[in-house]
Amino acid sequence: MSTKKVRKKILYYLGLTVLSSLINFLMKTVKIRYKNYSTIEKFKSEKQNFVSAFWHGTMLTGWYIHKDTNIAALVSKSKDGDILEKLLGRWGYKVVRGSSSNGGKEALLLLLELAENGYSIAITPDGPKGPPYKMKAGAVITAKTKKIPLILAGISCCKKKVLKSWDNFEVPYPFSIINVVFSEPIWIDSKLNYEETNKLITDCEIKLNKLRKEASKLCSE
């Protein structure tokens, strides 16, 4: 490998470290207000693993609230995914790399294996490329297959920068308030057929969007 390529690679990984450190510091400054958090506390105390689903645009908070627990996350194989892998490593995650377009089947199988071994799973069901706020099957299928509860998390940053990206990515301002509203646990019958499972996915999508709007309304209180 040439000296130029080595230098470029070193700078790239230094950049990953600096950026993940900045994000980590930012999230430590925010105040997170929870609604319906008791179920999450109960599951964690009982060591009951679960699937947590939140929209891609709110993933910084969605991942942060579960840090340092026995949890795994699916991250794309893109360069952005490299940053997230570094960040999630700081937060104690088991990171699985893949997406629906690149290594998705293998990644899903690994997530299922981790769930079988007691890991909770954090999923952005509209990722990695959208459309935004439209739920794909991964969260429901994981919960259904492994017979563990699915919990939806509606998230809204009260003061934030919304990036011009497909997912309306939210970057909270330092020391801002973030509202997180959890659903009741959803236990999915493993015997549901294809049509019933698809209906449940749609119902979860509607519910998650309602939770997101509820979290947003709490910012005015």
Rank of each mutant, 00 (worst) to 15 (best):
K94C: 14
L192S: 06
D80R: 04
N102A: 13
N168L: 11
L16K: 13
N209H: 02
D126C: 11
L109S: 09
Y93R: 11
I177R: 13
I40K: 01
F182I: 10
P172W: 00
E113N: 06
Q48N: 13
K5P: 03
C219K: 07
N179P: 03
Y119K: 06
L218M: 09
N102R: 11
S190T: 13
G138P: 12
I155D: 11
L192D: 10
N193Y: 11
F182K: 02
K210P: 00
M1D: 14
Y34E: 11
S100Q: 02
T29K: 05
Y173V: 01
A143V: 02
L150G: 12
I83G: 11
S38N: 04
M59F: 13
M1S: 12
K9C: 00
E113I: 00
D82A: 03
L150K: 08
N70K: 12
W91N: 05
Y133V: 08
A137H: 04
T197S: 12
L26N: 01
L19A: 15
E214L: 14
A53L: 03
K47V: 02
I188G: 05
K4G: 08
A53K: 01
G130M: 03
K86I: 06
E170W: 01
I141C: 01
N179M: 03
H66Q: 15
L84D: 03
S38A: 09
I123R: 11
H66M: 15
L163E: 11
K105P: 01
I177F: 05
V30P: 02
N168F: 14
I188H: 01
E113F: 02
K164F: 08
R97C: 01
K147D: 10
E184P: 03
Y93I: 05
K160S: 06
S190Q: 07
K8P: 03
S176A: 07
K5C: 03
V181T: 10
P128Q: 05
T58A: 10
D82R: 04
A53W: 00
L22C: 09
H56D: 07
L192F: 14
I71F: 10
A122I: 09
R97D: 09
Y194R: 15
E41N: 07
P125T: 00
K28Q: 09
K207Q: 07
K8R: 15
K136A: 15
K42I: 00
E184I: 00
E41M: 04
E170L: 01
K67Q: 13
W166Y: 04
I177W: 02
T29E: 12
L108I: 15
M59I: 13
N179C: 07
T202E: 07
E116V: 00
I121T: 06
Y93W: 05
L84M: 12
P172H: 01
F182R: 04
I83M: 11
S100L: 04
K5E: 14
P132D: 10
A72S: 15
V171S: 02
